[in-house]
Amino acid sequence: MIALLLRDLRLATRAGGGFGLGLAFFLMVAVLVPLGVGPEAATLSRIAPGILWVGALLACLLSLDRLFALDFEDGSLDLLATAPIPLEGMVAVKGLAHWLVTGLPLTAISPVLGLLMHLAPAGYPWLVLALALGTPALSMIGAFGAALTVGLKRGGLLMSLLVLPMYVPTLIFGADLVTRGAQGQATTTPLLFLAAVTLGSAAVLPFAAAQALRMNLR
């Protein structure tokens, strides 16, 4: 399993692996939104949590359609399915690898983008915390969507349609956590709900995704 994790990380960071594309996209969103809505600090600071979350969500989605599709095309998925690693474990590891190369860097640069969006100073720790807690759920839910659409041509577009509605709870709790944190309100409720969504996704979705992969392989 560690070998698989290392391989996926290595593939992502080699040329053509797409590492950094998500980050660049995230940056684009934070630059384009102020250009669209105007430079007033008050407006930007009010919409900052939501925009940053939506940006993170879309950036995560960008690289998801490659999660299993590449392995499916070159035959690795068949070979992994006959390997001694359980398919559930493989899904979990690939989800983790996806988070390490998208969710984690997004979380790390989010304060800089918060700056561009005039996020209230009190909101920064909450922004980082919310993304750190919520982006693993985005990767796991995405892995499920990718498993469903793995054998399809143009699966990427369909996958977005399947995955985005499932991102709603994470988005709501995540953005609300940052908003409340920035305004100095009580944050316990969204924090716990966000953690619950992530933990629940990580616990259950590898099984659903592995099942979907088995259905797609036969």
């Binding site: 053509g16 035959g75 992994l80 006959t82």
Partner: peptide, 25 residues
């Protein structure tokens, strides 16, 4: 099982490709 597709990753070297499968198994 070995089929038409070899499951090779084009950006990895020969040794890396094979080493990966060796540690998986």
């Amino acid at each position: 099982y070995a089929a038409h597709a070899d499951g090779l990753k084009s950006t990895l070297t020969v040794a890396e490709n094979l080493g990966f499968w060796a540690s998986v198994f």
